[in-house]
Amino acid sequence: MSIRARKIPVLIRFALHHSRVLQIAVIIGFWALGEGLVRRFDLPVPGGIIGMVLVLALLASGVISPLSMRRGAYWLLAEMLLFFVPAVMAVLDHHEFVGLLGLKLLAVIVIGTGLVMGGTALTVDLCYRWQVRHALH
């Protein structure tokens, strides 16, 4: 193999490690692969989850480096709001939310969220204290 031919994988890796657009393309590729697998085997989970598990497996086994996806992945996560804002516009079709029904929905969300936050935090804190106490003895 000539030196130039051997350089090609190195060049690809360099490009992948430095281009956010390429990394996003790779992530979209994994998502498409996940969707394909879900359709092929009729799996009960979304394709994105299968893609995520595949990426996790490849990262954990050292086949791919986190550097080849890191910038693209954190960009997608940081701009996530843009991708779900269109769905929020569904409220346009729900004029009935203006009024008592809207207040009821808000009540469910506010009370529920308060209980979730309090319940989760107290449970975790209790577990943490239990763990600390048992680590000492």
Partner: peptide, 21 residues
């Protein structure tokens, strides 16, 4: 605009990075 919502699929894949790190 549903193409933007479809991009939530790749966002799910992207969650692999914070889990791994």
């Amino acid at each position: 605009t549903h193409w933007l919502v479809a991009l939530l699929g790749p966002v799910t894949v992207a969650f692999a990075l914070p889990i791994y790190e």
